[in-house]
Design a binder for these strands. Structure first.
Length: 423
RNA sequence: GGAGAUGUGGCAGAGUGGUCGAUUGCGGUAGUCUUGAAAACUACUGUACUGCAAGGUACCGGGGGUUCGAAUCCCUCCAUCUCCGCCA
């Protein structure tokens, strides 16, 4: 959510940047500014009324004390009209605030200056590629065949127990999954991130804090009995650790990592691109999160991308880094890099990480601020990225490393798996 | 889940209808004193909105209500503690 003052002061820039998203915000912003003007004048009128009321109330108290009952009663009469109009103003103000909030929720984040214009993922900019794509035999299998062949993941059994999109990992498949989680966490810890294990369910305030609500309500599993949401990513509980917090400059940067299962309803997505591990209702992910001083957040974004690149290098997977164009950029992000690994058997790139700078967009909703050197409270910048999402990494590992002898495990993982081949 | 108690500023802890945005102590910042430090003393020390400013307004767990006036009374929700029940 953008701050109204920021919108007022940077209207032209915002509108220009919105063009990268193909988002026309002219009418919305004008409406917001107009409504904010109304908010101010209503507030002003209300404040004056309250001030008047407070003054009279004090007089009444004084008069009672002096025993001047009659005068007090007279003044009491005066407060009646004041009170009534105060109620009207208060209602008007609430209505305005509600409308204003609703409009502000509709404004996406302002894309960073370097975001390429574009309408779809076809316009994303490839800024880096690494690793060579292995050449496989003609009889190479996609991962959903490999997992069956080696008894690593049972999709059908998951259907029985829960439903489609809830696979059962077993044997070496389970072990490999656990190894990847440990590997990712250890790498993050080595990079200075503090590990946290957060709740897998969050309350409504947290879901609003990171922007899942109100726009993505249908994507989360919701438990009405207790008014809780299953987390779609660890970003939600971990970023919300810093909701309503005022940090000191010396606290920067805050670096957290956490492994959690993630739950997504994925309503409306079916078909071949959701086959096997490509899209699930429950999947594992290690997330990295940073809270940073606004001056340093873009530097930090690069280090986070480097961290993820390091993971992929160690896993010896061919990958590329994309800078998302405006049309593909998430609602809350100012700049996002996607990392994709190449699945040789499926012959396509699979998104395994998304690293974003949200600037103050989340911080404004979270009310996560810091005191600057002048003692003024300012909004922080929040960043996060997957490091990494497990299922597609698993898919790529299985597919790219298949040989006639079995599936080879990359060296970096062997200490975690305890085996170097699946056969 | 049942019964009871509690929730005040960074912390501790007063305040039970009016002069309370809130006594006091600790902590913090600045100053005086000192070669320096400590001690002592003095002043300042929450957040947000609004205004050029002076100022005004709101906030005593959250929300709502009673009242001319609420930290103080009422309702409701949340959290914590104690006891009981249940339980990995």
């Amino acid at each position: 959510m953008l701050q109204t003052n920021y919108i007022r002061e940077n209207k032209e820039t915002i509108l220009e940047r919105y063009q990268k998203r193909n988002f026309d915000g002219v009418a919305l912003i004008d409406q917001i500014i107009k409504l904010d003007d109304e908010r101010k004048s209503t507030q002003h009128a209300l404040d004056n009324q309250l001030a008047e009321g407070n003054k009279l109330a004090k007089q009444i108290g004084q008069l009672f004390k002096e025993g001047k009952q009659q005068e007090a009663v007279q003044i009491k009469e005066q407060t009646k009209a004041l009170k009534e109009s105060g109620i009207v103003l208060k209602e008007e103000q609430n209505k305005i605030l509600e409308q204003l909030k609703e409009l502000l929720y509709q404004l996406p984040n302002v894309p960073n200056q370097t975001v390429p214009a574009g309408t779809s993922e076809a316009d994303n900019e490839t800024i880096f590629e690494a690793g060579s794509i292995p050449v496989l035999n003609d009889n190479a299998l996609p991962h959903w065949e490999l997992t069956k062949k080696y008894n690593l993941i049972d999709f059908e059994l998951g259907v029985k127990v829960a439903g489609a999109g809830f696979p059962i990992y077993r044997g070496k498949g389970a072990k490999l999954q656990r190894a990847l989680i440990s590997f990712f966490l250890e790498e993050a810890i080595e990079n200075g991130y503090e590990e946290v294990i957060p709740p897998l369910m969050v309350n409504e305030a947290s879901a609003y804090g990171t922007g899942q609500l109100p726009d993505k309500e249908g994507q989360m599993y919701y438990m009405p009995a207790d008014d809780l949401y299953m987390i779609p990513t660890a970003e939600v509980p971990i970023t919300n650790l810093y909701r309503d917090v005022i940090l000191k400059e010396k606290d920067f940067p805050i670096k957290n990592t956490g492994y959690t299962p993630c739950f997504r309803r994925e309503a409306g997505s079916y078909g071949s691109d959701v086959r096997g591990l490509n899209r699930l209702h429950q999947f594992d992910k290690v997330e990295i999160i940073q809270i940073q001083h606004p001056d340093k957040s873009y530097e930090t974004l690069d280090t986070m991308v480097d961290h993820v690149k390091g993971l992929l290098n160690k896993l010896e997977l061919p990958y590329r880094v994309l800078k998302l164009c405006g049309g593909d950029l998430g609602f809350t992000a100012a700049l996002t890099f996607d990392l994709e690994v190449y699945s040789t058997a499926q012959k396509k790139w699979l998104e395994v990480s998304s690293v974003s700078n949200f600037e103050t967009f989340q911080a404004n909703r979270l009310k996560c601020r810091y005191k600057d050197d002048k003692g003024k409270t300012q909004l922080v910048h929040t960043l996060n990225g997957s490091a990494l999402a497990l299922p597609r990494i698993m898919a790529a590992l299985l597919e790219n490393n298949q040989t006639d002898d079995g599936i080879k495990i990359p060296k970096a993982l062997v200490p975690y798996t305890g085996f170097d081949i699946i056969n």
